[in-house]
Design a protein around this nucleic acid. Sequence first.
DNA 1: GCGTTGTTGATATGATATAACGCATGGATC
DNA 2: GATCCATGCGTTATATCATATCAACAACGC
Lengths: 186, 186
Amino acid sequence: MIYVCNTITRQGADMAHDHASDCPSCQEPAAAFSRHDHAHCAQDVLERADGLVAQSGARLTPVRRRVLEILLEEHRAMGAYDVLKRLAAEGYGNQPPVAYRALEFLVEQGLAHRIRRLNAFAACMHPGEAHAPAFLICRNCNIVAEAPAAAVRKALDAAADMLGFLVERSTVEALGLCPACRDQAA
Amino acid sequence: MIYVCNTITRQGADMAHDHASDCPSCQEPAAAFSRHDHAHCAQDVLERADGLVAQSGARLTPVRRRVLEILLEEHRAMGAYDVLKRLAAEGYGNQPPVAYRALEFLVEQGLAHRIRRLNAFAACMHPGEAHAPAFLICRNCNIVAEAPAAAVRKALDAAADMLGFLVERSTVEALGLCPACRDQAA
DNA sequence: GCGTTGTTGATATGATATAACGCATGGATC
DNA sequence: GATCCATGCGTTATATCATATCAACAACGC
């Protein structure tokens, strides 16, 4: 099962709509890749982020918090320079290190993910919950979904263990076709 | 099990030694991450590459073949610009596209792998054999091993399938500690 | 206050990757 | 052989991604 708020895109898919906090699509398991609102999921993530960071002894400074907000607002995988443009427009530093440092911090804290295939970053929609997501990237429409991948991670650990290798972090990304583009192709 | 010829490095680990073609370490399963000769494995791969490319209707041109040879000789993950330097020194073009085009071709043909975490490329030691390797990268000594990952791929396919996503290509990379560095740390 | 630590801003540079153009080659066709 | 076409190569230029370094400043404990 996957929660819709896992769904993120690289190019922005204009999927916002307003709704009350009882929106079932943010409360219950649902099909990934479906259009959905994101506003209150984002709000929820932000609130939890505050607690999580404090808990780890780190500080969610204004720049860092703003970067997380931007990732949540955009709801897609963004390049560091995309983030930087937004920061600069809002009066923060406009040098690459500003964005990279904040993004690195968020990744370390488990509040964001780095998607290497896209040289991009996306907010994690499940901060605090232990998870090892796999990213599914549609080669046609560029939508990206964060899929649960506990089984994948387990298989990887096993394969590594046979070689005596200890896995600390892993990257699992798949390129292919999302349901919509798959139908379209057929 | 993994065959030693899976073992590749990013920084070059000086693991060459000469031996006869009956070297057991290239004939039989053995521990990964161990030092080993690579010369005749490379020769074998090259010969198979010729056949495979012809079979697919593509052409293994001089530049492309040379890039594959270089990857095999170096026996490690190389950046595109590392490859380019070698090419330039041998009279081929010395502009980035020359290296990138050849590398992209090799990846498409399944003769090389791209390791995104390192922004690097490595020759595939099992061309033609269906395989979905996982890369194990030691964060301490930078050694890289190509591990069999059929089970990982299977788990990924299953996770994607639950979302209706069709996986065409996948990237599985792990960062951690190789056996040697693990022992050293303990 | 005062040092220590961590964060930010700025400069500069390094590293990786692609777009676009034109020429050369080689094979197919007439 | 002449022509056409597809493919590959070399080149220029540029785009994109990422980091090293240092100075200024704020937060904190002592």
